Amino acid sequence: MTSGGAGAGRCRRIGRYVAGSHPPVPSLVLAVAWAYGVTGLFAALDPLVTRWRPGAGTAVAAVTVFADLLLMRALDDVRDLDYDRRFNPGRPLASGAVRVGDLGVLYALGAPAVLALNAARPWQAAILGVQLAYGVILVAVHCRWGWPPGERLLVNLLVSLPAPVLLHAYLYAGYLHAAGHRAGWPGCAAVVVAVLAAGHAELAKNITREPRPGERTYAAALGLRGSAVLALAAPALSAALLAAWSRAPLAWTPAAVLPLAVPAAAGHRFLRGRARRPAAAPPLHLLLTFAGYAALGLAR
Rank of each mutant, 00 (worst) to 15 (best):
T2N: 13
G5D: 14
G7L: 15
A8M: 15
G9W: 11
R10W: 01
C11T: 12
R12Y: 10
R13M: 01
V18L: 15
S21G: 05
S21N: 01
S21Y: 00
P24V: 02
Y36A: 14
G37E: 06
G37N: 08
F42G: 08
A44F: 07
L45S: 02
D46H: 03
V49A: 14
W52L: 09
R53T: 12
P54E: 11
G57N: 03
A59H: 10
A59V: 14
V60W: 12
A61N: 04
A62T: 10
A62Q: 07
V65N: 00
V65M: 09
V65S: 01
L71A: 12
M72L: 14
Y83Q: 00
Y83E: 04
R85Q: 07
R86Q: 00
F87W: 03
P89D: 01
P92M: 02
G96T: 00
A97G: 13
A97E: 15
G104S: 12
L106E: 10
Y107H: 11
A108E: 12
L117G: 15
N118L: 13
N118E: 14
A119G: 01
R121Q: 13
A126G: 12
I127Y: 04
V130D: 03
L132V: 01
G135Q: 07
G135N: 07
V136N: 08
C143K: 15
C143R: 15
G150M: 01
E151M: 03
E151Y: 10
R152I: 00
P164H: 04
P164I: 07
P164A: 03
L167N: 04
H168A: 05
L171D: 06
G174A: 03
L176M: 09
L176A: 09
H177N: 08
G187M: 03
A189V: 08
V193C: 07
A194H: 06
A197M: 09
A204H: 02
K205W: 06
N206F: 10
T217K: 00
A219P: 08
G223A: 05
G226E: 08
L230A: 14
L230W: 02
A233P: 00
A248C: 02
W252S: 10
P254Q: 04
P259L: 09
A264C: 10
A264I: 11
L271Q: 08
R276V: 12
P278Y: 09
A280Q: 12
P282F: 05
H285V: 06
L286F: 06
A294I: 07
L296Y: 01
